[in-house]
Design a protein around this nucleic acid. Sequence first.
DNA 1: ATAATATTCTACTAATTTGGTGGAATTAAT
DNA 2: ATTAATTCCACCAAATTAGTAGAATATTAT
Lengths: 136, 136
Amino acid sequence: MLTQKGKYAIKALICLAEKKSQVRTQDIANDAQIPKKFLESILLELKRHGLVTSQQGAAGGYSLAKSPNDINLADLHRIFEGPIALIACAADRFYKPCQDCISVETCKLRLAMKQVRDTTFHALESITIQKIIDGK
Amino acid sequence: MLTQKGKYAIKALICLAEKKSQVRTQDIANDAQIPKKFLESILLELKRHGLVTSQQGAAGGYSLAKSPNDINLADLHRIFEGPIALIACAADRFYKPCQDCISVETCKLRLAMKQVRDTTFHALESITIQKIIDGK
DNA sequence: ATAATATTCTACTAATTTGGTGGAATTAAT
DNA sequence: ATTAATTCCACCAAATTAGTAGAATATTAT
């Protein structure tokens, strides 16, 4: 399951994509029903990852840094939820050998988990913010 | 990502499937490198869900209650990790309407998430304990 | 019977993660 | 200079995770 943070991030991006102009945090918060302070930290994280840009000061706000066609759920999952794989040794970007699997034997699990990861990854990658808005 | 509990459950089931006889908790713990006390609670949960049977007392232990061909990762995911869907309103067995999505508008998200769920579900369902052991 | 050994049950705990909040500092427009 | 916005930093309560401890119960072997 997604964390609230991850879910809020998607909703915030949908909101930003729908209004095409710059939007204030407060307006996104109202629109998408997200606690403002919490949303701030989410937008900051989206900015750090280059998905949105911001302008400070009065008349400031956030806007998308890329086309909603170029923001997909796989990227968002990695930012807010971590690895797409179910175990670390089956991950691509977050790969880590598992310390509790001593034998190669046991890591037949890895093979199976890699399949799940690949399938889930493609499903997530194929869904963009724009597709969500369009109802596909 | 899987919890340790979920990962241990899979490893314990693999262990039980490999030795075809009844196995003591202690032996599974040694084999699969799982803290014994923690493993106990996992086996109990597997028993409650009808995946293993147990015999008490001396010469007791656990054994599989079904063929390793009939235990798949989707079932295990639901037992130890909860819903397969990324948001509750896109789940099948764990369905819950989301309270923070007021408009149907916003629940275009649900449509997208349902696709991801279905894809992931089929990937998980297709993988059984036996397939993991056989390396597919 | 009783000792030994195994599962079962109840309860507790430390560490981490999640879902926030508060407030000060900074930046920019009027 | 004032106002209104983002940014930054630090904190916090509740929930979850990953176990542990110990007693109770069931079964076998002696």
